[in-house]
């Protein structure tokens, strides 16, 4: 198998996801198959080829640093699952 169950668990932990046993089995098999397919990339000689992260060659989109209208605080908070005193409220951070 291209990716072990332990690796799936490790990666899930990095991505803040949790899976039950059946999901771990299914994901390690499916992601393993995809990674095997992706291995075809190794057939390509890429010696000295620069990587492309962006298809259009633009650098540094500068603009003047001018204050503009922004969202009102209450509008920005309107979608918050929980809020208090004009702030986002979360469960406790330090256990």
């Amino acid at each position: 198998m291209k990716i072990s169950k332990e690796e799936v668990l490790h990666v899930a932990n990095l991505a803040h996801l949790e899976f039950d046993e059946a999901e771990i089995d299914r994901f390690s098999e499916q992601v393993g198959k995809i990674l095997e397919y992706v291995d075809a990339l190794n057939q390509v000689d890429t010696t000295g080829i620069k990587p492309t992260s962006h298809a259009i060659f633009l650098t540094n989109a500068f603009r003047e640093d001018v204050p503009k209208a922004h969202l009102d605080r209450q509008v920005g908070l309107a979608n918050a699952p929980e809020q208090e005193d004009g702030c986002f409220l979360t469960p406790r951070v330090i256990g």
Partner: peptide
């Protein structure tokens, strides 16, 4: 689950809430 969207309300720590 912090600023928008659905939040799991059963968690009592932040990390658990994320997951």
């Amino acid at each position: 689950g912090v600023r928008f969207g659905v939040r799991d309300k059963s968690s009592d720590s932040l990390q658990e809430m994320f997951r």
